[in-house]
């Protein structure tokens, strides 16, 4: 599945700062959750976003979708700068950009039937659709994501975590968007269910030509699913490359350490890995520097 080369999403110099204000006239400062992040996502491509907790992964996801608009920078979606859209225009744009959230237990309205939840996408963006038409469309979506349509009248608490995530995915694809931000969509699920949901996401990508921004801390899943991967560290991208290039030849010390922290499913090898890690204590990683293309499509932050 090779992705074509034009970007559907183009993020430039995106920053998100939170003011830290001293409450009695102290000097105001800011917390830089995300600083000067740029990347493109091509049509039909999955870009992985990895990094430790607090590195700004979710902040980027929510800034790109304008759920939590960025402090600075541009997010061009199909040539339109989302940051400059009026709230009303942005609401219309949401038909083309969808989000799948991390916790399918929290992302569903407990007092709305799951059929109504999925149907809401049509109510908002396809006012011309009649009631029967919406029901049929919801039934079709339920089947597409592997749920029985007769469950549409049920409420979220009657479903398992995997089923709920399918419901969320059904709503996300209802309007045939071109771009989906998947913010840790499998982190709250059992391992066996994770595989099903990831495969569903892949099938939908092939079918609908979707682009994904796949946010995850599960490095192996990211390699399996993503065409390219961006490594985030302290709110900045430190390395961005094709998946295989990044995993086989990590250049930035943080990437190396991140990949080195993945446990090996072999007790002997794992013990050796942990022993080696303890033998050589981690040296501090220097901050700063610019992204430099060290190999075709392989960008690494390098101190100038």
């Amino acid at each position: 599945m090779r992705a074509p080369d034009y970007p559907i999403v183009s993020v430039r110099n995106l920053s998100k700062h939170y003011p830290l204000r001293s409450w009695w006239g102290g000097k105001a400062s800011v917390f830089r959750a995300v600083e000067d992040v740029s990347f493109d996502i091509r049509a039909g491509e999955t870009l992985g976003l990895v990094g430790e907790s607090g590195s700004g992964k979710s902040t980027i996801g929510r800034a790109v979708t304008m759920l939590n608009p960025p402090t600075a920078g541009t997010v061009a979606f199909e040539g339109t700068d989302l940051a400059k859209l009026s709230p009303r225009a942005m609401r219309g744009m949401r038909a083309r950009i969808q989000t799948v959230f991390q916790d399918p237990y929290a992302a569903l309205n407990p007092r709305m039937s799951v059929g109504d939840y999925v149907s809401e996408a049509f109510k908002l963006h396809r006012p011309e659709m009649g009631r029967a038409e919406r029901r049929a469309a919801v039934a079709g979506l339920f089947e597409r994501v592997g749920l029985e349509p007769r469950f549409a009248g049920r409420f979220p608490h009657q479903f398992s975590g995997g089923q709920r995530q399918r419901i969320c995915i059904a709503r996300a694809i209802a309007l045939k968007p071109s771009f989906i931000v998947a913010d840790e969509p499998i982190a709250a699920l059992d391992v066996s269910i994770q595989a099903q949901v990831v495969n569903l996401l892949q099938d939908l990508q092939a079918e609908l030509g979707l682009s994904y921004l796949f946010i995850s801390h599960d490095l192996r899943m990211v390699r399996y699913l993503c065409h390219r991967v961006a490594v985030l560290w302290r709110g900045r991208i430190v390395e961005l490359a094709e998946s295989d290039a990044l995993y086989d030849d990590p250049r930035h010390p943080y990437t190396q350490r991140l990949l080195g922290a993945v446990p090996v499913p072999d007790p002997a090898a794992e013990r050796a890995r942990l022993a080696a890690e303890q033998a050589r204590p981690a040296s501090p990683i220097a901050e700063g520097g610019d992204l430099v293309e060290v190999a075709p499509g392989h960008w690494v932050v390098t101190r100038s």
Binding site: T65, R88, R94, Q98, T99, F101, D103, P110, L124
Partner: peptide, 23 residues
């Protein structure tokens, strides 16, 4: 989170308040 999910699908504020929060 479901309120943010409601925003992400394009609900206007009045609809979030009446359809998602009120019930």
């Amino acid at each position: 989170e479901f309120v943010e999910a409601a925003r992400s699908v394009g609900n206007p504020p009045w609809r979030i308040a009446l359809v998602h929060i009120l019930p």
